[in-house]
């Protein structure tokens, strides 16, 4: 996937911006907490590089781990009541179902800009600072 205009702009500002490692050439490490995710997709729209995207699959375990007062939590509680066993892996999501999707995070594409974390309304995407030394070795120059 080519970079978006915004992504290009970010790379422009970086000297010798070549590697796009998960630790992020800009300075954040992205940590995702899928149990908090509600599938709104704001992170995916905000991501300039396509590292975060709305996938075509959904892991029903996310319903079990979601906060009980959330919509996913309520659905999880109903599912748990009638379940005969633990969910057996991810399921394919039909086109028109918007929010029950597991976010796909491609660490190799992440530049650590933190846009997803700023966009996330629930704290499911979190941006942690990376020590300066690590940034340098991660590729400011190479």
């Amino acid at each position: 996937m080519p970079l978006t205009a915004r992504g290009e702009a970010i790379f422009e500002r970086l000297p010798n911006a070549a590697p796009r490692t998960s630790t992020g050439s800009i300075g954040c490490q992205i940590v995702r907490h899928e149990e908090l995710c509600i599938g709104c997709g704001r992170c995916a729209s905000a991501c300039p590089t396509g590292a975060t995207s709305k996938g075509d699959m959904f892991d029903p375990m996310q319903l079990y781990s979601a906060p009980p007062e959330s919509r996913r939590g309520a659905l999880g509680a109903a599912l748990r009541t009638i379940a005969r066993h633990q969910p057996s892996g991810s399921i394919a999501v039909p086109d028109r179902v918007a929010a029950f999707r597991t976010i796909v995070f491609d660490a190799a594409r992440c530049i650590g800009c933190g846009a997803c974390a700023r966009a996330c309304p629930t704290g499911a995407a979190e941006a942690l600072p990376v020590p300066a030394a690590e940034i340098a070795s991660a590729g400011m120059n190479g």
């Binding site: 709104c40 704001r42 309304p121 629930t122």
Partner: peptide, 10 residues
């Protein structure tokens, strides 16, 4: 409302 825009798109 978190402004995700799903409602707008559908």
């Amino acid at each position: 409302c978190i402004g995700c825009g799903i409602c707008e798109s559908i």
